[in-house]
Amino acid sequence: MQSFNYAKPASLADAAAALAKAEDGTLLAGGQTLLPTMKARLAAPSDLVDLAGIAELKGISVSGGTVTIGAMTRHADVAGSAEVKGAIPALAALAGGIGDQAVRNRGTIGGSVANNDPAADYPAAVLGLGATVRTNSRSIAADDFFTGLFDTALNAGEIVTAVSFPVPQKAAYVKFPNPASRYAMVGVFVAKTASGVRVAVTGAGNGGVFRVPAYEAALAANFSPSAIADGVISAADMNSDLHADAEYRAHLVAVMARRAVAAAG
């Protein structure tokens, strides 16, 4: 790991100021991705601005059909939250399946969505539920937020403060985890809402998380696994690596999607 300056501001304004004056600064949330990346010298920020001291970034609230989760809320907190389990059980279950317990005790939702790892779980929930990403300067719709591999609509210096999830009628997330890392080789989030069905896929696409309009249309007409039984996904845009080739990932998308619809009930 290369050396860096460390700051732990107590307010969002101080964090933004610390980041602005840094030569090549980075925000530190739970560190479960950033620190391994820095250890591998794939990242070498001049400054780390630790968000752990900012109380307003933590916590979960449910009101008016919306679940809002502060950016520094840990996966373990979301997984164990009675409020999240009551409002969107699929979201609590997704958080409880990220990494392992020790990782869930450190990793945060804000860090996950800002990093936009193509195999991370949270982007599937954010896109699948049509959530809104809140930052220190604006609100960004999920459909506009994820722009490519490890790439988002966030501007330089912009800080994710919370993610707001509309409560769906029903939803489920099913993933085929890599047995070593527990990252999704393919994960599919399906949500049925008053305004239609959304299907979001993580782990599979070579451009990161994506929606499947053909599945959404079929499921809007008939919300059952049989509605997408013939729904072949093209392998052309799938990721291919030593864990699974593109054809296998395309196959898994269809299988995981049917399982998610069945699990949503």
Partner: peptide, 14 residues
């Protein structure tokens, strides 16, 4: 709570 101490800075445990 369990944490992986290889993936945490000492300053984070201040």
């Amino acid at each position: 709570e369990a944490a992986k101490s290889c993936t945490m800075l000492a300053v984070q445990a201040n």
